[in-house]
């Protein structure tokens, strides 16, 4: 038996006003996949990631996770399993640690084990950051640090599918390489896959196992 099928989308379409961004879009993600989205700016890469997380209503088509449609999962659970990371992440007031802890309060995530310091520390180490990063004021982080915060915040919930929108856009080369390595390791540790966008075609060649081109 091959790697298990995680996400399947069929016949998706996105139109902005009278401009058709993409249509008849089919997508299948199996465990271990790292799917790179290829399209020029403004072609709707972000909108596709948002559609997969069901943050916007689907204009056409169907979508399922492990063979089950979103309604049977419940939308909050769907999003915790098909987790979208925005291009410009946000954090609320308080420390980095407070930001990593607060989502555990959500009804959906409450009974799932909660905050684990050792795990976060290991990831920070892999990214070349000291544990003191957790005590930083989240509202004063640089764009790159904010992206790291968002990644850690997402990884701790072990989603099945990570949707990464320009995840390394504000990072230096060394941290980008460390993040890619961490993601590969994390993906291999379970039945997981990721979809990502990048303005850097070298990153797509290097990191993607497959690519998908968006067109009207």
């Amino acid at each position: 038996m091959g790697p298990s099928l995680l996400l399947r989308a069929e016949g998706l379409k996105r139109q902005l006003g009278d401009r058709l961004l993409w249509s008849q879009l089919n997508l299948v993600l199996a465990a271990g996949d790292r799917l790179g989205l290829v399209a020029p700016s403004g072609a709707g890469k972000t909108l596709l990631l948002r559609a997969l997380a069901l943050l916007d209503p689907l204009q056409a088509g169907t979508i399922s996770l492990q063979g089950r449609p979103p309604a049977t999962w419940g939308l909050p659970r769907w999003r915790s399993m098909v987790l979208y990371l925005a291009q410009r992440p946000t954090a609320h007031g308080g420390t980095v640690e407070a930001n990593l802890r607060s989502p555990w309060e959500f009804q959906e995530l409450r009974g799932r084990g909660g905050w684990r310091y050792e795990r976060i520390k290991g990831w920070l180490q892999a990214l070349g950051r000291d544990p003191s990063f957790l005590a930083y004021d989240a509202e004063r982080l640089s764009g790159g640090e904010l992206q790291l915060l968002a990644l850690l915040r997402a990884l701790q919930f072990d989603p099945s599918v990570l949707l990464l929108d320009e995840p390394t856009a504000s990072l230096d080369g060394a941290t980008t390489a460390a993040l890619e390595a961490l993601l590969i390791e994390w993906l291999a540790a379970g039945q997981r896959a990721c979809v990502f966008t990048s303005h850097d075609s070298e990153q797509i060649q290097r990191f993607a196992t497959r690519t998908l081109e968006l067109r009207p």
Binding site: P76, R79, T90, P103, F106, A150, F157
Partner: peptide, 8 residues
């Protein structure tokens, strides 16, 4: 951001 993490 909250919605994407699974908030209602």
């Amino acid at each position: 951001t909250a919605l994407a993490l699974g908030a209602t």
